[in-house]
Design a protein around this nucleic acid. Sequence first.
DNA 1: CTATTTGCCAAACGATCGTTTGGCTTGAGC
DNA 2: GCTCAAGCCAAACGATCGTTTGGCAAATAG
Lengths: 213, 213
Amino acid sequence: MRDPHIDQSAQTIDLPCGSAGKGRTDRWPELLEAAAELFAEKGYDGTSLRDIADRLGMLKGSLYHYISGKSDLLVHVMREAHRRGLRSIAALAREEGPAIERLEAIVVAHARYVCTERVFTAGFFEARRHLPEARAVEFAADERDYRLRVEALIVRGQDEGALRTDLDPKLTALCLLGFLNSLHLWVRPNGVHSIRRICDHAVMLGLDGLRRR
Amino acid sequence: MRDPHIDQSAQTIDLPCGSAGKGRTDRWPELLEAAAELFAEKGYDGTSLRDIADRLGMLKGSLYHYISGKSDLLVHVMREAHRRGLRSIAALAREEGPAIERLEAIVVAHARYVCTERVFTAGFFEARRHLPEARAVEFAADERDYRLRVEALIVRGQDEGALRTDLDPKLTALCLLGFLNSLHLWVRPNGVHSIRRICDHAVMLGLDGLRRR
DNA sequence: CTATTTGCCAAACGATCGTTTGGCTTGAGC
DNA sequence: GCTCAAGCCAAACGATCGTTTGGCAAATAG
């Protein structure tokens, strides 16, 4: 069986399917979206291949033309989530300028991504839970790198006099990122609060604090 | 089959088992702890009754002397989590005194509970996902009540001049509680950070903010 | 002592799971 | 027109799931 997805380089942003064909139907994007959506909604173990196939209007056995197995979808959901947001957000941590401004930009971008790409964010964390250790390391390095850069920004913010010095950089980074990564758990797609306001409040809670100055 | 658990009033703090017996083995607490632990670790659908029975050293069929079915465990895990912490934490929101002090007390107590009772907190949110709508309303009312009280405290804190007035009370309460409820996702039981320090940082992030004053 | 209940085992049930196989249909390339 | 691969259906596989049933051994009550 063909499997153009497994070996696809994580560096490219091309669709995992090597569809250079012209008029052929290729439902890989649909499959990926359906898998992420169902994983986010019902969990990995709670989603059967039949559920996914139903959403595409096909039988579960037919999915094996696109994937090598159910666990295969986990990796691709994570890669897609990774591709859609984490990489570009992490890039913000590498730019220059005052640390406090970089932190603000990161918080806003991270919050915006988690809120707008709710499905893939939830799918990402759901997938990570069920990924075997060997597969998880592929993404763990990037996450760790991202967290360390935020940590470094906090340290630099302290040195530059913008951030209070009585907090532990690592613990603070964990709190901040943990908070941002949990937004998708309660933010609702068509909720009463606009994403813009949610991002504003994320900055207020994360950086400014609630206390009056 | 007996089922002393289903009809047990949610008001008492007695163990769900009516074990007035003297020397009998009654492994209900073990069962509850094992279920919560496995649900938190592997998820509800990822945990089989055989997994739970194995941890107690018995066969899966034997569990039906304690429960009426697998979904039954969900309700009991949530009730236990509810009993252990949420009720006492919510009580803090009803006490008197300056709003800002009440908020601080709530944040500390909530963070401490989520960190110390990691298993039942994770089990609580895992259980809530898989609870049928009809069962979920039993707990939704308490959660909503708790959130509304935090909201009211934020409003009062604004009126008293302790909190900044440019934030939306409801959205802020959602952010704050969402942050606290997500601590269990990355806090590790025997991690390098003490619970005390984690609580301190939760207050810093949630109330004081990171910026230097 | 006997009678009854508790706690658990042993075995089986139907249902559903992920996965495999073989074949049909359609459209592209030569 | 022929060839070949893509895309999907149909049917089956063994494994595991939650659940039920019958029964045995020990402890309790009378």
